[in-house]
């Protein structure tokens, strides 16, 4: 059998390792600052969600189900699901997970929407970003954990960094597509009346792309939830960690309770964020 020649050896792994150590050595302060900002935001969300007692959160989410999803049945389902999470003894962990998700989505949108707008405005930006986004989405999600761990250590922050990277592509993509598919004449009309690029963006492109952007936000949120669970492997407290512990100790029942709590959270988040995009379509 003919082996692949040893001479043709691209030391990619070595390069990346040395790049990482260079970054760690010289950019340490930079990562510390980023980590601190992320931590502050997530702590703020956690403080809010852990401060508000369950008997207020549950009716509020029920109300959201009724008003936003426009179905009292859905509201009832939400309430029952939340009560079940509470009865499993996972209320605090669920709120921690929720805070992580919301903080991650917050950062994802902060990065993703402007990037999507840039991408829609320039074919070159689209040409560069598109393969990058494809790569980000096809990459197995744990892969992000390793560099995140190295730059930010254990805990919430690296989990969130990995989550942000994993969850940001849909909102970028759908912002881009949404803006690009806005009625050409509406944009032309705005320009014909002498609107500045900024006016075109805020008066026409963003409002008309809103349903599409909302679908992007919905998908980003769902992916963030999935990743936050995985993020528990590097020390992010929450429902994911409960599942991980249950697996390690082979406690099927406990794992199931935690797992189903995650599913309940996912359903609630999905229905509520999805209702935003539907509501906007109806107004048209």
């Amino acid at each position: 059998m003919i082996e692949f020649p040893d001479i043709v050896n691209i030391p990619l792994a070595a390069w990346i390792d040395s790049a990482m150590s260079w970054l760690l050595k010289h950019m340490d302060g930079f990562f510390d600052v980023i980590g601190l900002i992320i931590l502050q935001v997530v702590m703020a969300f956690e403080a809010v969600f852990l401060f508000i007692p369950w008997f207020i959160v549950i009716p509020l989410i029920g109300l959201a189900g009724w008003k936003l999803v426009k179905s009292w049945k859905m509201a009832l389902v939400f309430i029952v699901m939340l009560l079940m999470i509470g009865s499993f003894g996972y209320w605090d962990l669920a709120m921690r997970t929720l805070s992580l998700v919301i903080a991650s989505v917050f950062f994802s949108l902060l990065i993703g929407i402007p990037l999507g707008i840039t991408m829609a405005g320039s074919d070159r930006a689209e040409g560069i970003l598109k393969p990058l986004l494809d790569g980000m989405q096809t990459m197995p999600s744990f892969v992000y954990l390793i560099p995140a761990l190295m730059f930010f250590g254990m805990g919430k922050v690296p989990a969130m960094v990995a989550t942000i990277i994993y969850a940001v592509p849909p909102v970028i993509r759908l912002t881009n597509v949404g803006i690009r598919t806005v009625d050409r004449e509406a944009v032309e009309a705005s320009k014909a009346f002498g609107a500045t690029p900024r006016q075109v963006l805020f008066d026409v492109q963003l409002p008309l792309a809103k349903p599409s952007i909302m679908v992007g936000i919905n998908q980003t949120t769902m992916m963030a939830l999935a990743m936050v669970v995985i993020g528990s492997m590097i020390g992010a407290k929450g429902l994911g960690m409960e599942v991980l512990l249950a697996i390690n100790r082979i406690e099927v029942g406990r794992g199931f309770e935690a797992g189903i709590s995650i599913v309940f959270l996912a359903i609630i988040i999905d229905r509520i964020t999805f209702s935003f995009s539907e509501k906007n379509e109806k107004r048209k």
Binding site: D183, E185, A186, E188, A189, S190, K191, A192, F193, G194, A195, T196, D203, V204, P207, L208, K210, R283, K284
Partner: peptide
């Protein structure tokens, strides 16, 4: 931009209206 604003008005085949604004807001755009 200034020139477009002061000299022209344009009407489009598919109207080019902004669906999220009222008729008055559209006319005043």
């Amino acid at each position: 931009l200034q020139f477009r604003r002061k000299t022209f008005g344009m009407v489009f085949q598919h109207y080019g209206l902004l669906p999220h604004m009222t008729v008055l807001d559209n006319a005043a755009y």
